[in-house]
Computed example of a mutant assay.
Amino acid sequence: MNKDFKFTINNICFDENYQPSNNTRATTNFANLARGDSRQQNLRNALKMIDNSFNALAHWDNPNGDRYSVELEIISVDMNIEAQGQSFPSIEILKTHIVDHKTNKRIEGIVGNNFSSYVRDYDFSVRLLGHNKGQSSFSIPEGFGDLHGKLFKYFVNSETYQQHFKKLPVICLSVSDNKIYHRTENQHPVLGVEYLPNESSLTEQYFQKMGLQVRYFMPPNSVAPLAFYFFGDLLADYTNLELISTISTMETFQKIYRPEIYNANAVAGKRYQPNLKNLDHSLTHIVYDREERSQLAIEQGKFAEEHFIKPHQAVLEQWAASYSA
């Protein structure tokens, strides 16, 4: 492995007093909530939604629905390019911890959950848009996602990752609104009913380059499937409580940011196509600006281009050509 790249991990508690750092992408789920006049109420409401969802899923030996609470930790990963003495905020993910108030134990949850990356912003909001500007038909640039995928695999295989985390990450995203999902007969007690997409999405292909495979499950009490990206065996490698910590956290974010899908008033059927124009949905009591998020993604992609891609292009291309996971 290339000794010129090293990773530094910083962590901060995500609670009602959370303040985003200057290096945090403003479109990140948790950072977006912590801005504006409603920031503290947003955070308080979101955390309460997560706890309620967790207890509803972890209902055994939990008669009052208040046995557990979830603590969240933001993991910020800086990539240090030693030859040039510079570092760049490469990845942000969430780590869950489960507090069992019956046994007074704090149980380690799953790392991953939310996934935030400036380089991904560059790929989708700068490179992909630029490649298709003025084109009559949509196409994907050659090698799209290759560098980002190798950087992610390099991080997960690094000593730094292995020193901080016991298990491989699980990332949970929303389903694609331009795909059709079909319900299967496969059902898991916590993940719920499995769905299969009619075709692969660009997001699937992008995450595949990161070494991740995907399965779609609609958990109990949910109205739409979630996309779970993982290494190994999702159903066998994680405990029920670990999986519930991811479901409760990420479905809460999706209810806030994708209410047309995840806070819809009708449950997904056997054949399901998500619809971001669905009017039959409920809103949470949480304030955010979806349009601003889209604009910020472009700004953040340009930031990555200016401060990471262009200054280090030769080093990155040479490293990527020789890197093998």
Rank of each mutant, 00 (worst) to 15 (best):
L243W: 07
T249L: 12
A266H: 04
S245Q: 06
E194S: 08
F230Y: 15
F228R: 11
L241I: 14
L202S: 08
L235I: 11
H188V: 06
V267Q: 05
L235E: 15
V223M: 14
P259N: 00
P219H: 11
Y216S: 12
I247Q: 04
P220K: 15
Q205I: 06
S201R: 07
E194T: 03
P189C: 08
T203N: 07
N240P: 05
I244C: 08
T252F: 01
F230Q: 03
T246S: 15
P219I: 03
Y216E: 10
F207R: 10
Q254T: 01
N263D: 00
A236S: 14
F207A: 04
G232W: 07
G211M: 08
L241K: 03
K209W: 06
L191C: 12
T246K: 01
V190L: 15
V190M: 15
K209I: 04
F228Q: 12
V223P: 11
Y216L: 06
E260V: 01
S248V: 04
D233C: 11
L234N: 05
N240E: 13
T239G: 13
M250Y: 01
V193A: 14
N186Y: 07
F217G: 09
K255Q: 11
L234P: 07
F230W: 04
R215S: 15
P197Y: 06
F207V: 03
P259T: 01
M218W: 10
E251Q: 12
A236G: 08
